[in-house]
């Protein structure tokens, strides 16, 4: 065998081992490296009340309700399998709309409601011009204007 072939085999083996190790490490991190719980993973996670966690998902359509004080907002975060009630006191981000994504920092209270300290909007991978939003029904048809009503 020529030295060149030896080096080639060595390089291929090393690369395969490296990528294998990387994939193994990544799959082992699958739960730990997730940035937030979804309502479904939270329901199975057995997180004690008061522990700081992050919750992410879709804001359920029709669930946003604002208190008379003007800054407390109640809403429901959902994923495909579960829902979670959330309460937040503060200014919501511009992109916080029903049917769109949200990531909340906070903790569970004793009654099973998620009390959020901060909200981040999470947008999906769809990019649709504003004037087409009513035509394209496959994506969230809400705009900022619906919240202003």
């Amino acid at each position: 065998m020529k030295p060149k072939h030896q080096r080639l085999i060595l390089a291929i083996l090393a690369l395969a081992a490296l990528i294998g190790a990387g994939l193994l490490a990544a799959s082992a991190l699958r739960e730990e490296a997730s940035y937030f719980y979804t309502p479904a993973t939270l329901a199975n996670a057995d997180v004690e009340p008061g522990k700081a966690i992050r919750l992410g998902g879709m804001v359920q359509k029709g669930s946003v309700r604002r208190d008379a004080d003007g800054i407390t907002v109640h809403f429901i975060v959902q994923d495909r399998d579960a829902t979670q009630a959330v309460v937040y006191k503060g200014i919501t981000p511009d992109l916080f709309v029903e049917g769109s994504g949200v990531v909340a920092d906070g903790r569970m209270d004793a009654k099973g409601v998620f009390v959020a300290d901060s909200l981040l909007a999470k947008h999906d991978e769809n990019y649709v011009p504003r004037e087409l939003k009513d035509i394209d029904m496959s994506t969230a048809e809400h705009s900022k204007d619906t919240l202003a009503e």
């Binding site: 490296l18 990528i19 990387g22 490296a33 940035y35 992410g56 990531v103 947008h123």
Partner: peptide
């Protein structure tokens, strides 16, 4: 180079702030 597929798959493997 191991990091390249990890960047690409990060939004699929892990719940993330960044969209898919």
């Amino acid at each position: 180079a191991v990091n390249i597929p990890i960047i690409n798959r990060s939004v699929v493997w892990w719940e993330s702030q960044h969209q898919k």
